[in-house]
């Protein structure tokens, strides 16, 4: 895309493989402040390069699009910087002609989204990598809309993650990349992990192993790679996901990270008062279950989301 200063912003893609097989794409950075996908893409590119130079075959295609919103990533921003538009609310996008005007907003982000969407239409599997936001830390997980649950069930055992969250969603989700690709018949998984503006190496390592295992399942990688053990993720649904919200404002100091079993009553952190030195609230799980989300941003308002737990009876 040409900029107003007549330079170009590119949507860069790195491709591997002989083209004679299934096509897999990894996309990350639609939100410019989510960075784990960069590190994941680095590992994959490095692995695939070494694989090829060792003379082993990559049947089909592996495409890496690590920086899907480059202007935002360059500016350390989440949204399309020109107008603060969430690119993941712009799909399926537009082609930039008067016959196809943007539904709202300035326009350029919808054109960008349209180009990305069109590009990904021919793939057999797309993984859209997200790193939560500045506020919450997520254990590596797959998210999928209830109506595309079958896509998750086909692939989730080969993703190496602990959690698959099958959710019903408000109407705005209709405007995401994953929803539009799934609707267009391109199986798409959303992977969430970590927190915005940080790289969580151990989570990236988990998802990296998961992607290798997906590539084996698709028949793109085979031979010398040991068969990946299937993971058996917990399915989170609207029936068993519990939300823990704060009751007071203050700053939050967590006791633990995320991706653990917790017990009812177990403290996961405290909301503190900087002026008085008092503890305003002990934040404790109200359920036995699996803690898959925890507050990462220290500043909390009353009602801020502190944690999500999959209740396990």
């Amino acid at each position: 895309m040409k900029t107003p200063l007549q330079e170009k912003i590119g949507l860069f893609e790195s491709s591997f493989g002989d083209g004679a097989g299934k096509r897999f794409a990894l996309v990350s950075g639609i939100h410019g402040d989510e960075l784990d996908g960069l590190y994941l893409s680095y590992h994959l590119a490095r692995f695939l390069r070494e694989w090829e130079s060792a003379g082993k075959s990559i049947r089909g295609q592996v495409s890496l699009i690590p920086v899907a919103n480059p202007l935002a990533t360059a500016a350390t921003e989440r949204f399309w910087p020109f107008g603060q538009i969430d690119v993941n609310r712009c799909f399926p996008g537009t082609n930039g002609t008067a016959a196809d005007p943007p539904p709202q907003g300035e326009g350029a982000s919808h054109v960008w989204a349209g180009a990305l969407f069109e590009h990904l239409k021919g793939f057999d599997l797309v993984v859209d990598v997200h790193s939560s936001n500045l506020f919450l830390r997520e254990c590596p997980q797959i998210r999928v809309l209830n109506r595309y649950r079958a896509v998750a069930e086909t692939y989730a055992d080969h993703t190496n993650v602990d959690v698959v969250w099958v959710h019903d969603a408000p109407t705005v989700i209709e405007t995401t990349l994953s929803c539009n690709l799934n609707a267009a018949g391109v199986p798409t998984l959303v992977v969430e992990m970590g927190v915005g503006l940080r790289i969580q190496k151990e989570f990236v390592e988990i998802v990296f192993q998961g992607v290798l295992s997906l590539l084996q399942k698709l028949g793109i990688l085979s031979g010398a790679l040991p068969p990946a053990p299937p993971s058996r993720p917990i399915y989170a649904t609207d029936q068993n996901v519990r939300y823990l919200n704060s009751e007071s404002g203050g700053f939050f100091v967590p006791d633990i990270s995320v991706g653990f079993k917790v017990e009812q009553g177990q403290r996961i952190g405290r909301i503190l008062d900087a002026l008085s030195g008092e503890v305003k609230e002990d934040v404790a799980s109200r359920w036995n279950g699996y803690l898959f989300t925890i507050r990462a941003h220290p500043i909390v308002y009353p009602g801020s989301l502190m944690a999500r737990v999959i209740e396990i009876a």
Partner: peptide, 10 residues
């Protein structure tokens, strides 16, 4: 009112 345009801007 904002003069900065990309192709496809309204």
């Amino acid at each position: 009112s904002n003069p900065v345009l990309y192709a496809g801007s309204l």
